[in-house]
Nucleic acid binder design. Sequence first.
DNA 1: GTCTATAAGAAGATAGAC
DNA 2: GTCTATCTTCTTATAGAC
Lengths: 182, 182
Amino acid sequence: MHENRPGTARERLLAAALDLFAEHGVSGTSLQMIADRLGVTKAAVYHQFQSKDDIVLAVIHPALERLGPLADHAEAQRGQTARRETVLAGIVDLVVDERKVTTTLSFDPVVKRLVSAHPALRSLHRIRQLLGGSAPDPGSRVRIAVLSGGLIMAGADPAVKGLDDEDFRDHLLAAARRILKG
Amino acid sequence: MHENRPGTARERLLAAALDLFAEHGVSGTSLQMIADRLGVTKAAVYHQFQSKDDIVLAVIHPALERLGPLADHAEAQRGQTARRETVLAGIVDLVVDERKVTTTLSFDPVVKRLVSAHPALRSLHRIRQLLGGSAPDPGSRVRIAVLSGGLIMAGADPAVKGLDDEDFRDHLLAAARRILKG
DNA sequence: GTCTATAAGAAGATAGAC
DNA sequence: GTCTATCTTCTTATAGAC
């Protein structure tokens, strides 16, 4: 009896891969580990994806595909303040919705290599530009750097585990405004 | 002639390892890569260290050994404000001095596994306690999470690369106070 | 401190049957 | 969609000579 769990085989594979990436990192996760977690063999994994890089790209895709529209929407606002507010809200929504992906993979060396050759890299630069404006002074640059790292990694903190998405989003936005305002 | 570069063989090995960990992550770095960078064989690496874990522990040791004294010094202050200021300054000094280690390895799955079985874990908890006080409300918990991630990862940001240590430290401390101050 | 040589296993990936 | 079997390469680690 093939009693499959919910979702397609592909979706179940991506969920298992993300869990394992979160625990062991991308390089520390083998295709064998992914196959074992699903109760299948490596060959079944290769039926769904051509390579390990393809699996990683598919895992980060839901997050990456939101970057372009987010940048578009923010750039359409009138005035730098409105643009910054819009991009900040969008980024916070993204890191809350996709916190497992962003905390686990944003700083993973394998992911950084793949993203550096990905179209979404442009959107990332646009978002960065919107957040920082043209930030020539060192103080602003450091604040943006702290904000970026803080927003991305906050979701990984044990002290935040209990919060539901709505509370997390509100407090994250408040913390972000503290860093930027003034 | 064996024209050695500055430092002992052990020090050169640890510097090479840190460079490679920064680029490829711990799991993505093999002993062969470390040996190649030094122009020696794997066997020469095994003469200095018993295992790969030993190399990782030696790389993070300079950062870990500062945590205990930092916590001691902060806890010796009178008043919660003074304790928080002291721990904040100490943490900022640490992430500035050791930014390559902290940005590269703080969130590496291999390092997290090793630190979870390391005596310095206690110091980390003490520092966290000093930073957050007893922070029961969600807003404070999120702010501390953002601060932690932000302080650790800020040094990895390209926009910060040009700053010298003194400027980086001052601006980092200012950013941290923005997040915390009530 | 460094070398050669090698073990023993796991890695990513492919071929072809069912 | 999943399997067995296999290939090639790389991995950590050890033994022993110089």
